[in-house]
Design a protein around this nucleic acid. Structure first.
Length: 441
RNA sequence: GCCCCCAUGGUGUAGCGGUGAGCACGGCGUCCUUUCACGGCGCAAGCGGGAGUUCGACUCUCCCUGGGGGUACCA
């Protein structure tokens, strides 16, 4: 089996594209097959090395690998010209100057469901000749056979007047040359498949098997498309998601095994994934579920590994202690800094928190806490807790009336990791200094 | 307009003629609790509609409705 992933080199790898990549990859790896990359775009402006590089980067981050260097369509123009000429010579294609208006006029005359048929001229764009009778049958691994009657199909333009070839022609030739046996792509390509089948037929070649994946929609139900600035893999990475969690989540967006398990490791995914089991209905990208799943993966990583990833992401070091007391509370890597950044950067500025917890009663409690903290020894969570609980008892207060002022003094906000642990990580000197600073204001 | 695809709770799905329609996210409640989380327990919430086929339909067929895609000298 040989599959190919063919992203458009528009710079960002969009989430739907990432899922397509994943399914291709899982299908290939699971069956001991091969996955090749085809960077498809007949437009030289878009197929820039930088754009291609970005797609490759995104794939690398997802840890989705491929077996051969990217096949560039633009670089294959000689081959495409050769095949195009063969179709022209064989009478399978013809030149025509017919415009969209001509096509419309033809339909007004022959009926709306009647495909356009042109006359051969000696200039103009190249159109494929479509027979009036017969049909194109797409053998789809997910949906079964889909039949398109030839009569309904317009003679498709396969090359511009200047000779440059168009997608539906190029992709058929490239897949054929690359020996692709299974084409796994988005459902938006289903309706165009007959054109590709016709090209293959004109060439006397067998068609590959197809698998058209249901499209992905955004939370609003609209198409989550590369054109509509939808979330991309790059954005997921920047939002602090883990590649293994993204793979798990994306795999489930349109596929489920018999037991409908939710948390499935990539290894397990490779073993269990079957393209035939992919669902036929479009799915919505639900970031909430991704966040939850990401949290689960984070907690399985262990403190050292989370620290390592966080340090690469932020470029800072010495985060381990802060990670240890925060890891239960964050869902993504990006959640860490807003929660624990105050440990390194000093208290945040939250006037409302200060007003509420550092007013009269709060200041008294804080002052008492400071005193108790001075003698906590050793300065570890256990002894800190003893000291602070002592203050609570002595004041006859509720725990929060003592803990919250301390929290706000240290963190500047009402949200932070556990207060005893935070104090311990900060150390006695820094903790007391922050409390003093809070007391002074 | 024409061609094609799709249809289980708010979301993702399991189901493949007989089920109390299962799981997960989210929601709500509750326990834990120093904040926020995590975790435990519980609750609400679904087969779009109509005809068939069948002893029996979420499961099969048709129609409708509703989504989506294609229909470019874009990919």
């Amino acid at each position: 089996m040989r599959v190919r992933f063919a992203p458009s080199p528009t710079g960002q790898l969009h989430i739907g594209g990432a899922r397509t990549a994943l399914y291709n990859w899982l299908a290939a790896r699971g069956q001991g097959g091969t996955m090749v990359l085809r960077i498809e775009d007949t437009d030289r402006e878009r197929s820039t090395p930088e754009n291609v590089e970005q797609i490759l980067d995104a794939l690398n981050w997802l840890e989705i690998d491929w077996d051969e260097g990217p096949i560039s369509q633009v670089a294959r123009s000689d081959r495409h010209q050769e095949v195009l000429q063969r179709l022209l010579d064989g009478g399978h294609a013809y030149r025509s100057t017919a415009t969209a208006d001509d096509v419309k006029a033809y339909k007004d005359l022959h009926g709306a469901d009647r495909g356009f048929r042109g006359e051969a001229q000696d200039e103009g764009a190249v159109r494929l000749r479509v027979p009036d009778d017969g049909q194109a049958v797409v053998h789809d691994l997910i949906r079964g056979d889909t039949t398109f009657q030839h009569v309904h199909l317009d003679d498709p333009v396969i090359a511009r007047a200047d000779g440059s070839v168009l997608y539906n022609f190029a992709v058929a030739v490239d897949d054929l040359d690359a020996g692709i046996t299974q084409v796994i792509r988005g459902e938006d390509h289903l309706s165009n498949t007959p054109k590709q089948l016709l090209v293959l037929e004109a060439l006397g070649a067998d068609a590959p098997d197809y698998a058209h994946l249901p499209l992905l929609h955004g939370p609003d139900g609209k198409k989550l498309s590369k054109r509509h600035g939808a979330a991309s893999v790059q954005e997921l990475r920047d939002a602090g998601y883990l590649p293994e969690a993204v793979r798990n989540y994306l795999a489930l967006l349109g596929w489920g095994d018999e037991d409908d398990e939710t948390l499935i490791s990539t290894d397990e995914l490779v073993k269990r994934f079957r393209i035939e089991r992919v669902s036929r209905n479009p799915a919505r990208f639900d970031e909430q579920k991704l966040r939850w799943m990401n949290g689960r993966y984070m907690r399985e990583l262990g403190t050292d590994e989370i620290t390592r990833r966080l340090e690469t992401l932020t470029g800072r070091s010495g985060l381990r202690d802060a990670v240890a007391i925060s890891e239960q509370k964050i869902q993504t890597l990006a959640d860490f800094w807003p929660l624990a950044g105050f440990i390194f950067d000093g208290p945040a500025d939250d006037p409302r928190a200060r007003e509420k917890w550092l007013s009269d009663g709060g200041r008294e409690a804080l002052a008492d806490a400071r005193q108790a903290l001075e003698s906590a020894d050793p300065f570890d969570p256990e002894h800190i807790e003893q000291a602070l609980r002592g203050v609570v008892d002595a004041r006859g207060a509720k725990p929060r009336d003592v803990f919250q002022p301390v929290r706000v003094a240290l963190a500047g906000t009402t949200v932070s990791p556990g207060i005893f642990e935070t104090l311990a990580v900060l150390g006695r000197d820094e903790s007391l200094a922050r409390i003093d600073a809070a007391l002074r204001t």
